[in-house]
Structures are given as structure tokens and as C-alpha cells.
Computed example of a mutant assay.
Amino acid sequence: MSLLEHLNKDFESRVRLGIMSILVVNEWIDFLEMKDHLQVTDGNLASHINALEQKKYIEVKKEFVGKKPKTSYKATKTGKGAFEKHINALEKLLRG
């Protein structure tokens, strides 16, 4: 099996790689913080978050703070495991 086969296609996008990198080191992070960190548009971030949520890699929490809606995210155990495998495969690829 080649080293490339161990890479997870779900994390090939730089935005998804960024989302997961942020979520594995933070318990919860809200949409605006994530958008600010990654410097992407609302629609771009939302589409990548939706794809990761469908794969069960992230959990979404919607609530109201005062009268304003707040959406926050965290990496699931499944997401953390899949991301760790992906990062390990990248490291092996870089080391040759």
C-alpha cells in the first residue's frame, strides 16, 4: 500500500485541514472565530463544515446568546481519530 493511500481525501482541502487543526486544540469554537482564523467567506466555511458534519467528524451546537444565534463546533472522537491518521500519513510521506 502506498503512503498516499493513507491520506484522507476528506482533509485534502486547506479549509478542512484548517478547521480540523483548530478543532483538535479547542474544545468548542464558534463560527465567527473560525471564520476569523481561516479568513474565508461565510459560504465557503459553511459548506466545508457541512461536509465534515456529514462525515461525523465534527459536532455542531446551535444556541441563543441573548437574542443572537450562536453556532459552535467541536471535533468528535471519530473526527480526531481520522485527522490524527491523516496527519501521521502526511508526516510519513514527508519523511520518506
Rank of each mutant, 00 (worst) to 15 (best):
H48R: 07
Q39L: 01
T76P: 08
S72T: 07
N50C: 11
N50D: 14
E27W: 12
K70M: 15
W28P: 03
A46P: 01
E63P: 08
K70A: 14
Y57I: 00
Y73M: 03
A89T: 04
A82E: 11
V15W: 03
V25S: 00
I87R: 01
I58R: 10
R14T: 14
D36P: 02
Y73R: 04
E63W: 05
N44C: 13
A51N: 00
E63Y: 09
L23N: 09
K74P: 07
K35W: 00
E84C: 09
K56H: 11
S21G: 11
G79K: 06
Q39F: 02
K77A: 08
G79L: 06
G81K: 12
V24M: 15
F31C: 03
A75V: 07
T71K: 00
N50L: 14
V65L: 07
K62N: 14
N50K: 15
L23A: 09
L38F: 02
L32F: 14
V40T: 04
L17R: 09
I87K: 01
M20F: 09
A82Q: 12
H37D: 03
P69A: 08
A89K: 04
K61F: 13
V15S: 04
W28R: 10
Q54Y: 11
T71P: 06
E33I: 01
N88Q: 14
F83R: 08
I19Q: 02
L38H: 02
R14M: 11
I87E: 01
T76Q: 08
L32W: 14
H48S: 02
R14W: 12
E53W: 11
V65K: 10
K85E: 07
H86F: 11
N50G: 13
K61H: 14
G79Q: 04
S72C: 06
S72H: 05
G18M: 05
D42Q: 08
A75H: 05
K35E: 07
T76S: 13
T71I: 03
L32T: 13
G43W: 10
M34F: 06
I29Y: 02
K67Q: 10
K70T: 14
H86K: 09
A51W: 01
I87V: 04
K55F: 04
K85Y: 03
F64K: 15
K67F: 12
S72Q: 06
F64R: 15
H48K: 05
G81P: 01
D36T: 14
G18W: 05
I29N: 01
L38Q: 03
A46Y: 12
L45M: 10
F83E: 05
T76I: 12
G81F: 01
V24F: 13
K55M: 13
G66I: 10
I19Y: 05
G81L: 09
Y73E: 05
A82K: 15
F31R: 08
R16Q: 14
S72F: 00
L45I: 08
T78M: 10
Y57W: 02
D42C: 01
M34E: 06
Y57D: 01
G18N: 00
K55A: 12
N26M: 15
V25C: 04
